[in-house]
């Protein structure tokens, strides 16, 4: 055991030394950052999205985003598997007071609206599927915390999750069907740049991302909090 501690410290020291050396040396102009610069130049024309980060996330590097949705899905699935089968293990939800419950009731629609806004404006302004999805997940969690219900069943959750995932892939495959490449931008020149209805399929993709991220994070939160979904699992 002492050997293991020493080795662990060794990794730590070696890693730290390397990092410090390399980061201190790294001046940020060693090589012109070409690709990003070119995306800045061409991204607007390619996708018609005012937010270039969105073009990168959903357009140029859309495959990464699919992979990332997959990782969140794996994590939620595995967490569900670990926590799903523990009858009697979950603590009953804490019942909040009347005031907390009312506040949560009032907060719920506001947060949902905010999340939806962040998602559908993802191609125009900062924000998008991930951020909006996380806000929606929080919106579901707040009333649960206050003990005022509004659980959504595991069935609905997993249905939304899988529909959103398949939807993302389907939009990507639509381009493949039309003789293009997977996840190629479609209809990107319909609508004026900067308008809500612009950037072709990007807002749809972000909607799928938002729904998937939201439902997965909500399920993670509910399971970790020991409320909501486990109820129908235990039954």
């Amino acid at each position: 055991m002492t050997m293991r501690r020493n080795l662990a410290s060794l990794i730590f020291t070696v890693g730290l030394g390397l990092m410090l050396v390399s980061l201190m040396q790294g001046s940020h102009t060693a090589f012109p950052v070409e690709v990003g610069q070119n995306i800045n130049a061409a991204g607007f024309a390619d996708h018609g999205a005012a937010n270039l980060v969105t073009s990168v996330v959903l357009g140029y590097r859309g495959l990464d985003t699919l992979g990332e949705l997959t990782i969140l899905f794996v994590a939620a699935t595995a967490a569900g598997m670990v926590l799903g089968h523990c009858p009697g293990g979950s603590t009953p939800p804490v019942r909040g007071g009347f005031i907390l419950a009312t506040a949560a009731e009032l907060l719920f629609p506001f947060l949902i609206l905010l999340g939806a806004y962040i998602i559908i404006h993802g191609h125009l302004s900062p924000g998008g599927g991930f951020q909006g999805g996380a806000v929606i997940a929080a919106a579901y969690y707040v009333p649960l915390l206050a003990g005022s219900g509004r659980l959504f069943s595991e069935d609905t959750g997993s249905l939304i999750e899988s529909l959103a995932g398949v939807g993302f892939i389907a939009i990507g495959l639509l381009a493949l069907w039309g003789g293009g490449e997977f996840l190629a931008p479609l209809y990107s020149h319909n609508g004026a740049p900067g308008a809500l209805l612009s950037a072709g399929t990007l807002p749809l993709l972000y909607l799928a991302v938002g729904l998937k991220v939201g439902s997965e994070l909500a399920s993670l939160l509910a399971r970790l909090g020991g409320i909501g979904m486990e109820v129908d699992d235990d039954a």
């Binding site: 070409e34 690709v35 070119n38 995306i39 061409a42 390619d46 357009g59 140029y60 590097r61 859309g62 495959l63 990464d64 381009a175 293009g180 490449e181 997977f182 996840l183 190629a184 931008p185």
Partner: peptide
Amino acid sequence: AVGFGGFSIPLGI
């Protein structure tokens, strides 16, 4: 090689 999204390589995957 198979590209995605219709972008040439340094931009796309």
